[in-house]
């Protein structure tokens, strides 16, 4: 009896241990391959030059710049909306039915496939509002896509501000808005920032929503206005692998782009996750 007991435990534990190992092996080999084959491609010229000679030479600077534009722009769209929504839900204690309605819409919005956001952006921003395939359309589309993340992170941050701080402020004769502005928001800023950084990481890697709203395969220069289309790293990788006539050169460039993108996203999200862990342990969550 006792033998059996420890035997099933041994088998079971080795099973879940191997699951963990396989997971780490797969993810690790992805990072390894891209790092090993991509790092060699990176050079000063690759990072700073525009593409030349039908994408066989030069660099990918416009794609890097375009990626940053989209990261920044989508946050500008999502941050005010997301924080306002979180403030309303957490600070103004609306009726339960309203809270539930908004919460359900946030959860469902979070689950919409990214390519569907692309369709929405195409129909609404590109065509209906006439922004065309542009940085603006891309930022709006991506902004709506990351809105649920920003809301959840802001809510978590607002809840972490002790209720006693709100009470102290109100008891001193501050209005509710003053309390939010001077006590609640400053207290929740680090948490909101974490959510923003995580969302930025997500925006950097998203491709499907910008396929038909912002991205272009090949540009000889940099985007000049919010209404011009732009190269972006993830779309560029896709285009290099599926279009063009010099695959032998293009794969190398794609490795370089994938490496930059991977480093960018991993750095951004490690930063955010480490920050979040520090905050959580500080508030004892």
């Amino acid at each position: 009896m006792k033998m059996n007991k420890s035997l099933d435990q041994k088998i079971g534990f080795s099973l879940i241990f191997s699951m963990m190992l396989i997971t780490l092996f797969f993810l690790g080999s992805l990072v390894y391959f891209i790092a090993v084959r991509g790092a060699g491609i990176i050079s000063w010229q690759f990072l700073t030059d525009v593409p030349r000679e039908a994408m066989t030479k030069g660099g990918v600077a416009p794609a890097i710049v375009g990626t940053f534009y989209l990261m920044l722009g989508s946050v500008l769209v999502a941050l005010p909306l997301g924080v306002a929504c979180a403030i309303y839900l957490c600070e103004y204690s609306p009726k339960k039915t309203i809270v539930n309605l908004i919460r359900i819409s946030i959860n469902n919005l979070a689950g919409v496939p990214s390519v569907v956001f692309g369709l929405f952006g195409l129909a609404v921003f590109v065509k209906f509002f006439g922004f065309g395939v542009s940085i603006l359309s891309g930022c709006l589309t991506l902004g709506i896509m990351v809105l649920p993340n920003i809301i959840s992170a802001s809510q978590e941050a607002l809840i972490a501000v002790p209720q006693s701080h709100r009470e102290a402020s109100l008891a001193l004769g501050a209005t509710q808005w003053q309390t939010i502005k001077k006590v609640v928001l400053p207290g929740s800023l680090p948490g909101i920032l974490t959510g923003v950084i995580l969302s930025i990481g997500r925006v950097a890697g998203e491709t499907a929503p910008i396929l038909f709203t912002a991205g272009t395969f090949y540009m000889r220069g940099f985007p000049k206005s919010p209404l011009s289309e732009t190269m972006v790293l993830p779309y560029h990788i896709y285009a290099l692998m599926t279009e063009g006539v010099h695959p032998e050169f293009q794969v190398k460039i794609a490795y370089g782009c994938a490496f930059i993108l991977l480093i960018l996203v991993l750095l951004v999200s490690s930063f955010a996750i480490i920050l979040r862990q520090q905050q959580r342990s500080r508030y004892g969550i």
Partner: peptide
């Protein structure tokens, strides 16, 4: 004054719902 702030936040809070409905409408319409 605080009512005005509350109203502004309430309107913005419904943005997720608006986008969700917007997506539905766009997909169905097209």
């Amino acid at each position: 004054k605080s009512d005005i702030h509350k109203k502004i936040f309430a309107v913005l809070a419904f943005s997720s719902l608006v986008f969700l409905i917007g997506i539905t409408i766009v997909l169905f319409k097209e």
